[in-house]
């Protein structure tokens, strides 16, 4: 497999994420200021964390005078899924990625950046990853700033519509693959059924979303890895067959 390592390509691939991030971080900016944080504080949180759910959970703990332990536990629960993504991404990084790059790339391994990096057929190189991280970070931070400063300038109906942008991207990554590959489709179907059970079933729905994401994806992926193991050779072959 080849490696894509163009900064420009990374920037371009990060553009839809940047667009999708803007309204989400805009909402976070509004939320932070409404809760009593300053504009600068809201922006600093976004710049250093890059995690929507984690940040939203943190603000009430901060302003409510919660303990640092409470804050750390909340972040662990909500963000533990990133560990899984980092293990997966570790196998996707090309030869140009050195140890120092890994320390830097880890900072930008968000759901969406991970999703786009994984959707490449090739290995991803350092320059590509830096580009892919830079555009979304810009969108995330500037969205927070705009939301914190300008508050409700966007009409509600526009914010509502933009709320689906990120999910649209996820659909665009998953659907073409499951259309071609029966086993991946079955695996995804199982994970979605589990996800719905954990979302609606009594008791199970009390489990924090951060854990649910891990439980459902690990169960489905592990089961299918046993039932239908896939080798690198097979993946390569499919790539050649499909295009």
């Amino acid at each position: 497999m080849n490696e894509i390592n163009s900064f420009k390509k990374g920037i371009k691939a990060g553009l839809p994420i940047c667009v999708g991030y803007f309204p989400v971080s805009f909402a976070f900016g509004i939320f932070s200021v409404e809760n009593g944080l300053s504009v600068l504080q809201a922006v600093l949180i976004s710049l250093t964390n890059l995690t929507s759910a984690g940040q939203l959970a943190a603000v009430p703990i901060m302003v409510g005078g919660g303990t640092v332990v409470e804050l750390i536990l909340a972040q662990l629960v909500i963000n533990s899924r990133y560990s899984l993504m980092s293990v997966s991404l570790s196998q996707k990084l090309g030869k140009s990625v050195k140890l120092l790059d890994r320390f830097l790339i880890a900072f930008g391994n968000t759901d969406e950046i991970f999703a786009v990096a994984s959707s490449n057929k090739e290995y991803v190189g350092r320059k590509y990853m830096y580009g892919l991280i830079l555009t979304p970070v810009t969108g995330w931070v500037s969205g927070t700033l705009a939301g914190a400063v300008a508050g409700n300038i966007l009409p509600d109906i526009v914010t509502s519509a933009l709320g689906l942008a990120i999910y649209g991207m996820f659909v665009a990554i998953v659907v073409p693959v499951i259309k071609e590959e029966k086993w991946t489709a079955l695996c995804v179907a199982l994970s979605v059924v589990l996800s719905c059970i954990f979302y609606y079933a009594p008791v199970l729905k009390e489990i924090p979303t951060g854990f649910t994401v891990i439980i459902c994806s690990v169960l489905a992926s592990a089961l299918f890895a046993l039932v239908k193991p896939i080798t690198i050779e097979e993946i390569k072959k499919e790539v050649t067959d499909n295009g």
């Binding site: 999703a115 990554i173 998953v174 693959v177 979605v192 459902c216 994806s217 992926s221 896939i230």
Partner: peptide, 10 residues
């Protein structure tokens, strides 16, 4: 191999 697709779907 399966993880990205299941994580995103979930």
């Amino acid at each position: 191999y399966y993880v990205p697709y299941t994580v995103l779907s979930v």
